[in-house]
Structures are given as structure tokens and as C-alpha cells.
């Protein structure tokens, strides 16, 4: 199904950015299929022509549009085989992506990077876990946390705000998006034509996301800095607390790839910014509530014109496209 004016209502409806290496799936998102749809997983693919619009198809039918790489096939197998897909969120897709990459499906560079990330995450998880257990011990409670939910909460908090000033993933990504918001307009000043327009557009979008994510992070960090209250609330409403804390993550979802694309800039910066403009994540209406924006802001942002990009639609360079996407996997931190 092709939708030209795609404006999801919620972040879950927008889907989760997946680290696909298949050229046509660059920037594509995954989401759970609606009940009784006859399939479990849907993929939302940016218009391959590099213009406005998305295709939404069952993952099982994605082979009609492209030949997913071995990496992407393994990634979706992992997700479908392991999860209740209604829980699909950025953290889950990211974890599955690292596991598949660690097996070597995105090449040696991707495997090395993923193994390092998994090790680092284990350390961060342990730091956060120690802290949460100590808080739990201080505030004697009879409630025993559900192990899976407890693990999810710990991982979520470890991504947002670590004790003793250690670098957590989300603030690092926010800084990277902020740097992108400066770098792209700088680059555009010496350019002209569609690439300059695209660079300004992506720079502006990066600035908006940077502001929004910084705002949401501040709220989340304030909660984490009151761990006793946080845990008390979590025991009452685990899903609600998780959702509130993961807002920054949802807003940033898809931006890590844009940051990496600019870092690699293959085959050159001009074609890269055109590709980035075509892959800019749409803001669902829900973002207006989270960020206290006037109604209609998200729809207004979605109306920005996308400069056409030609290079990555060339079918003769598939191997280069896959290699470039795998290189992004090797840069993930």
C-alpha cells in the first residue's frame, strides 16, 4: 500500500527504525501488524523514488519489492521468533540488530562493533542494576518485581542516565544530533542547488529534534534522580512509567542512522544530504502532546518538500549500497 501523505498518529504507528542493510529498506521501519491482519509484522518503506510517501507492506511480502539481505532476514526472524510484537520498541529492535550483527551477518566490522556494544551495555546494565537494587533495599518493600519488566526498566534507565556521570547512550546521541544541526547548515553555505536545500532542511529538522529530545531527557533525568519515587510509581504502573521514560528514545528513533550517514557520507556529501532529506523521520501527532506543541505542528513539518535523490535508486550499484549500509553498522556505538 502506498501512502503519499503519511502522517501517523502515534510513535508506535510510525514504527521502529530498523538497521536494515538492504538498499530499498534503508530508513524503513517495523511495527506490529493490526490484529486480524493475517500477518504479524509490517514494514514501512520510504518511497524508493526518493520523494514523499511510504509503502506499508507485510514483512512476509517485502520480497515482492526487494530481496532482503541475509542480515535483514535474520533480524526479522529474530524479532518475530522471540517477541510479543505489540511490545516492539526502539530498544528491542536495537538489541536484536546488535545480536544479529555480532553473529557476523553485517560483516566483520559490524560484528566487532556489535560485540563491543553488547559488552559495554552489559557494564552499563550492571551499574544501573546495582543502583536500583540498592534503592529497593533502602525502601523495604514486599513487592517482588517481575523479572522481565525489571530488566526492561534497568536497560531503559541505563540508556538514559547513568550514575556517577558515566556516558549513557541517549545523551550521546542527542549531542550527535545537535552537532549535525550545526554541521549541515555550515556545509550548505558553500553549496548551491538541491543539495544545499536538503542540507538546510535536515539541519533544521535536527535542531528541532535536538530541542525536543533535550526537553524530554531533562524530564526523564529528573525522574531518575528521584529513584525511590520512580520505583514506587513503577510498581503501581510499570507500563506507564516505561512509556514516559522512553519518550526521548522514540523521538530520536531513526536519527542515529542519519548521524552515521553524514559521518560516512558515501559516495559524497551532496548525494548523502539528499538521501538524508528523503529519510527524515516524520513526527507523529503524539509528538505535539509530548512536547507541548501547537496542534498541527507535526502535519506542518510533514509537508516540507523533499528534493529528489537519484543515486541510491540506481539498481546497478546494489553491492555498494549494501556495503555502505554495513559500514554504518560498524560505526554504531
Amino acid at each position: 500500500m502506498f501512502i503519499e501523505a503519511y502522517q501517523p498518529k502515534t510513535f508506535r504507528e510510525r514504527g521502529v527504525s530498523a538497521p536494515f542493510t538492504t538498499p530499498l529498506l534503508t530508513g524503513a521501519r517495523l511495527r506490529a501488524a493490526p490484529a486480524r491482519a493475517g500477518h504479524v509484522l509490517e514494514v514501512i518503506i520510504p518511497n524508493p523514488a526518493g520523494r514523499r510517501g511510504v509503502y506499508i507492506v507485510p514483512w512476509s511480502e517485502s520480497g515482492d519489492l526487494c530481496r532482503p539481505t541475509m542480515h535483514d532476514a535474520r533480524l526479522t526472524e529474530t524479532l518475530v521468533g522471540r517477541l510479543d510484537l505489540s511490545m516492539l520498541c526502539p530498544a528491542i529492535v536495537r538489541q536484536a540488530g546488535w545480536e544479529v550483527a555480532a553473529e557476523g551477518h553485517a560483516g566483520r566490522g559490524g560484528a566487532t562493533a556489535a560485540q563491543r556494544v553488547l559488552r559495554d551495555n552489559a557494564v552499563r546494565f550492571a551499574m544501573m542494576s546495582t543502583r536500583l537494587y540498592s534503592v529497593l533495599a533502602e525502601h523495604e518493600t514486599d513487592a517482588a518485581p517481575d523479572p522481565a519488566a525489571w530488566e526492561r526498566l534497568t536497560a531503559l534507565l541505563a540508556d538514559i542516565h547513568l550514575p556517577e556521570g558515566a556516558a549513557a547512550r541517549v545523551p550521546v546521541l542527542i549531542d550527535a544530533v545537535g552537532a549535525l544541526a550545526v554541521a549541515l547548515p555550515d556545509w550548505a553555505t558553500a553549496q548551491s542547488g538541491p543539495a544545499a536545500t536538503a542540507a538546510q532542511m535536515v539541519g533544521t529538522a535536527a535542531r528541532l529534534v535536538h530541542h525536543g529530545a533535550t526537553y524530554l531527557l531533562r524530564i526523564a533525568v529528573a525522574q531518575i534522580d528521584q529513584p525511590a519515587t520512580l520505583l514506587r510509581d513503577w510498581f503501581v504502573d510499570p507500563v506507564g512509567v516505561e512509556l514516559a521514560l522512553s519518550r526521548t528514545e522514540w523521538l530520536l528513533d531513526g536519527w542515529e542512522r542519519l548521524v552515521l550517514l553524514w559521518q560516512v557520507a558515501l559516495p559524497g556529501p551532496a548525494v548523502t544530504v539528499l538521501e538524508m532529506a528523503a529519510l527524515l523521520p516524520v513526527w507523529p501527532d503524539e509528538a505535539e502532546v509530548w512536547l507541548e506543541l501547537p496542534a498541527g505542528t507535526a502535519a506542518h513539518l510533514a509537508r516540507r518538500p523533499v528534493p529528489p535523490s537519484r543515486f541510491w535508486t540506481d539498481p546497478t550499484i546494489t553491492v555498494d549500497q549494501i556495503a555502505r549500509n554495513e559500514r554504518l553498522r560498524a560505526l554504531v556505538t
Binding site: R67, G104, V319
Partner: peptide, 20 residues
């Protein structure tokens, strides 16, 4: 080479169907 390494080479040469 390992199975994954060989599958990757096969994928590059003839595509992902044969590799899978």
C-alpha cells in the same frame, strides 16, 4: 571459513536467496 563468512561471500556474488 565459517558458515556465515561463506554465506556472505555467496550473498555478494549471487544474492541473498542462495546465501540464506
Amino acid at each position: 571459513g565459517s558458515l556465515v563468512e561463506r554465506a556472505r561471500l555467496v550473498e555478494i556474488l549471487v544474492g541473498s536467496d542462495a546465501a540464506l
